[in-house]
């Protein structure tokens, strides 16, 4: 069953198609929820509510993007709502951390699992902006709209997230610190 057939069936409230949609995407979207949310319960709740919204709004899907991308957007929004309900979205770094030099190109040399562990170690504010910008492909303007912040704030949060990641990389592998390099 193609995504298009699945979509049409869901629009007709066909229970078989709806179940197939769940089976096909729920695990992927749950992984996405876990990247944003702090704990499993929160991620589970976000996923369930996301699917409720997806089923309710499938009729409004216009096909401008793929079905999966559209579903990911809805899930990300739901996760953001969860984060908002829990605590502050934005955090800040200390001055010492901010002025630390870094080279975050080393991030691409890591395995996906390692990258995810590093992302998970970020404060929730940084993690949210980083996930949205670097992984989901949101622009800073879109992030600002979704989070209700300025575009500049989104940029600075992402910048701080990069620095925090580099700090974490240096802690894991001191040789990655450019200050320690012979040149």
């Amino acid at each position: 069953m193609t995504d298009k057939e699945l979509l049409e069936g869901c629009k007709r409230e066909d229970r078989i198609c709806q179940r197939e949609l769940w089976n096909r995407y729920s695990k992927k979207l749950f992984a996405l929820c876990q990247r944003y949310c702090n704990n499993t319960e929160e991620a589970e709740d976000a996923l369930m509510e996301s699917f409720v919204k997806i089923y309710d709004n499938l009729a409004k899907f216009r096909g401008d993007s793929s079905l999966e991308t559209w579903m990911r957007r809805i899930t990300v929004n739901q996760c953001i709502n969860k984060i908002r309900a829990r605590k502050h979205v934005l955090d800040s770094l200390t001055e010492e951390e901010y002025h630390l030099g870094f080279d975050d190109q080393g991030l691409n040399n890591l395995q996906v699992k390692e990258i995810l562990l590093l992302i998970e170690s970020l404060p929730v504010g940084y993690r949210t902006v980083f996930n949205m910008y670097a992984i989901e492909g949101y622009s800073h303007k879109e992030i600002a709209d979704e989070l209700g912040i300025d575009e500049g704030t989104s940029r600075s949060q992402f910048s701080k997230a990069r620095k925090a990641l580099q700090l974490a990389l240096i802690k894991q592998n001191p040789s990655a610190n450019p200050l320690n390099s012979p040149s």
Binding site: K27, A31, L116, I135
Partner: peptide, 8 residues
């Protein structure tokens, strides 16, 4: 990362 799945 997008293709990652988590068990339910």
């Amino acid at each position: 990362i997008h293709d990652l799945e988590s068990p339910l």
